[in-house]
Design a binder for these strands. Sequence first.
DNA 1: TTCTTCAATTGCAATATTACGATAATTACT
DNA 2: AGTAATTATCGTAATATTGCAATTGAAGAA
Lengths: 111, 111
Amino acid sequence: MGSTKTDLFNKKQNELANMAKAIAHPARIAILEQLVKTNACICGDLVVELGLAQPTISQHLKELKLAGIIQGSVEGTSVCYCIDPKVWKKFREFFNNFFVEVGDPTGEGCC
Amino acid sequence: MGSTKTDLFNKKQNELANMAKAIAHPARIAILEQLVKTNACICGDLVVELGLAQPTISQHLKELKLAGIIQGSVEGTSVCYCIDPKVWKKFREFFNNFFVEVGDPTGEGCC
DNA sequence: TTCTTCAATTGCAATATTACGATAATTACT
DNA sequence: AGTAATTATCGTAATATTGCAATTGAAGAA
């Protein structure tokens, strides 16, 4: 126990769940916001911006990289991170498709 | 350690992270899909639909209810669940606002 | 009341996540 | 080589999540 039974669900459901998990932490949201805001890449500035320790930031970056939503490239002694626009769009579409317009005839749910 | 340092982040970031966490599990996504699909409410049918044990489903429902995205009301011996359209829309907007269009001049990130 | 049915809660085990100190790895510069 | 700067990884502790068996709770039917 303790681990998700992914085999019970279809690919889309697992994929969307993983996407949600990738952004299910305020630090990772803050990182993505920074990367979008500054358009280009930053690196260890993130450690200063957010108040978390360097290993913690590094770990969050790793998870975002694993999810594919960011890229990192070595730039001298520092590392430059940025959004992967392709994957970003994929996220955008997945969440958009999931949160379809839902009818509310009564305006107050159904029960 | 082990717990998120929510005080380092602003309200929007924490709120969005919590929303993401609410749907960061394929079972909860499957539940929401069912509720949207059947429009009206189901209840213990969810236990049959998904292959998880009754207490597990109950726990996922509890989390979704805590996030506010679903409502439950007693209907005889069974309980009827449904989407809260108001909160659903809020989720929709939050994710939509977060995943803004991101420019990709080169088409391949920035690093 | 007793029985049945369905859902919530409890208690527990397994696993995952979050955070950080300490340490390594990498690159640039002397 | 040695040093400084920056990031990744390791190891560990604290907490959170997932899942279910067993039980309890609540509502209707006998």
